[in-house]
């Protein structure tokens, strides 16, 4: 398997694994009081400290930087950026929807979901930057 393909596969696997873990945690938290309380506590804590006011503005700046890097990284791999950029774009859209949606705000893993989606975006950009463009 080519190194390029291997990196892309590794990044995608890691992203899927992280998201699956969140789904499992949310499912278990509807049965386990201790887990639900812990996740809820973390959710309130993270939302208060990371997703409100000045830290939220910093997140916006970070997303902007990431998006620019994703566009640049994607353009390294071909004339049109779409084939490489679409995954980042899906993650970005998912992040915005999850951040605003009343449904996801009600989930115990809400804050963890936002953090994970951002991590997935970082991984995606890192993958785009690391992978060597086709010669």
């Amino acid at each position: 398997m080519k190194k390029v393909t291997l990196i892309a596969f590794g990044v995608t696997s890691l992203q899927v694994t992280l998201l699956v873990i969140l789904v499992v945690l949310e499912y278990l938290s509807s049965y386990k009081a201790g887990l639900a309380q812990h996740l809820y506590f973390k959710k309130i804590s993270y939302v208060t400290h990371f997703y409100q006011g000045a830290p939220l503005f910093l997140h916006g700046v970070l997303l902007l930087i990431l998006t620019v890097m994703a566009v640049k990284g994607s353009s390294r791999h071909g004339k049109t950026i779409i084939p490489n950029f679409y995954k980042y774009f899906i993650l970005l859209t998912a992040f915005v929807i999850c951040f605003l949606s009343a449904f996801t705000r009600g989930l115990n893993i809400y804050a963890h979901l936002l953090i994970t989606l951002q991590l997935c975006m970082v991984l995606e950009v890192a993958g785009l930057m690391i992978r060597r463009p086709p010669s």
Partner: peptide
Amino acid sequence: PPTTTEPVMW
């Protein structure tokens, strides 16, 4: 019901 702001408590 749990508090919706910090500190979290029931």
